[in-house]
Amino acid sequence: MAGNPFPLSKAELLKAYRTMRTIREFEERLHVDFGRGDIPGFVHLYAGEEAAAAGIMIHLGDGDRIASTHRGHGHCIAKGVDVGEMMLEIYGKKGGSCNGKGGSMHIADLSKGMMGANGILGAGAPLVCGAALAAKYRKKGEVAISFVGDGASNQGTFLESLNLAAVWNLPAIFVVENNGYAESTSRDYGVAVDSYVDRAAGFGLPGITVDGTDFFAVYEAAGEIIRRAREGGGPSLLECKMVRFHGHFEGDAQTYRGPGELDDIRANHDCLKKFAAQVTAAGVISADELAPIDREALAVVEDAVARAKAAPLPTVADLTTDVYVSY
């Protein structure tokens, strides 16, 4: 036996797999429940993109901040937000992460360093500059990470933030989750400069492109970028090329996809399958050790749904609370 070839311990590998599997089960369940009409509002699913969230967040502690996107469930789970509270929130119930006032697009938990999913594309990048500025003042080596899709990378807020982070040498990291689509519009159409590393270079920032469906590629690249930021090396950009298993939002018929595209990405670009194949082929973790995690993740999600369905709805008393700290 040659031992563990990966730069993570077996326990860390199992944790990463559990994170990714929990996200997958969470999202696939929402897909079903939304289709049944159980969930109000807009829901954007992260399924297929799990390796990016897991490969980045495994480097972070609660003191490190992230700002997420409208497609934020995966970031929340990987950052340690309670899955049960998230499900309550998505169902619009009392006791949810935001007490039923935020919903899928606005889940936040500042105690976990999760500054919120965000319904405004590109809005998280300036906030992350602020979080990174606060970290710089605190001098504890904390970092802040802004997630942005390939589409929202066209927002002025994002580009201005690259500049501000560079000018102030902030411990800020900009992750472009490039799933090839801005809503229904191909990235190839909507982004005039075709490489996000080129965009970073325009602001004098280093950037890396990695296969975002390969946990280990993301893990190593993110590790270096985060270490650099912690040690005062300033901001960087990480482009994760990834795939989106579902539509832009739930209910999207996805007629813009090419023939066979979805079958292909599920068959050949599934980050969970890749991860399982890598760790089992290396003989570090057996399929028998992964199976219970699959069952537990499913059970966690099923339990969360059951509790969410049974939980009380907010009432008129909740309508006008928590607008201000004091008024």
Partner: peptide
């Protein structure tokens, strides 16, 4: 403040 359920 409101959107995050009073926690921010």
């Amino acid at each position: 403040k409101y959107m995050f359920g009073g926690k921010a």
